[in-house]
Amino acid sequence: MKSSMKREIYKQLRSIVIISVGLALIPPILQFNNYFLLVLTYILLYAVIVSAWNIIGGFGGQLDLGAGAFTGLGCFTMGTLLLRWNIPPVIGVFAGGLIAAAFGFIIGYPSFRFGLKDVWYALATIALVVVLKQFFTVWEQVGGPEERYLPGTYGSLYYLKLPYSYYYYILVVALAIVLFLNVKVKMSKLGYYLFSVRENEDAAEMLGVDVRMTKLKGLMIYAFITGTIGSFFALISGYIHPTQFNTDISLQIAILGIVGGLGSIYSPVITTFILQSASEYLRTVLGGWIPGIHLIFYGAILMIIVLFFPEGLSAILNKVYAKIGLFSLKKEEKK
């Protein structure tokens, strides 16, 4: 039992290393073109957050739309620490993760305590995004309408004001870590508990699973990662502003997670890469022609995927994995 688990983890680790190395090779192939690097960095940002969302949304089946709140908190914590006390972002990003996890606790504890589920939980979390956005707009000592630009000269490691390739490689490492965390959680008791909650909450409760605590743990792991990685939004754009509490991010993350296929580890990430690149491609090709037409296509693609592949893209991707023999998903997909 123990050794088979170890072997499984080792196998997954191999897949993750393959993905990371593959990702690491992309920039040199593209000759460090700034535009492609920036696109890829944003896609990676989303991929990491989607992968984190997978823990609460995919494994646990909780439709969390709080990603915008956590990324915003990450940005503001990191930015405020830097602007007020000159604390370097290297520390700030993790502080951002902690604050986001704290807020995850604040919203999650009572929500799960009072049994919020499904759409009600989704609404509570997306409402949180708007509440925080408006709160930071009014709270002028920290937020306010004015953008607060982050200090530092270009190329400074202390201020993490770096060329895109640095962010890209940091995020590749982050993605590898989060993917491995996904594997770890999935193999652990927490993972089994989360799956049981997703399948049938009442039955899980009856069988002695502490449903509240399970969900809360999943939520806080996700919030921590989202807060930490979310602060890169501020680092890349170079300022903090209440618009970083963005409901669009919440919707994007959730929809990518759902379309990717709930509970699968790699499919949401791969889906993010496919759909976000398609979106950016449509934008460059069609964007200048008729405003909005590329997003019509994007919306239509999303609907088609959900309507005709209810399992998400993972159903298709699994066949592809089987063909190329990667990811060894035989065991893992049937849950």
Binding site: L63, A122, A254, I255, V259, G299, L302, M303
Partner: peptide, 17 residues
Amino acid sequence: PLSQIAVTIGLLILLRN
């Protein structure tokens, strides 16, 4: 519920644009 939400968000993006 998750599929319903995903499909209607797709509809939202489509209609808005």
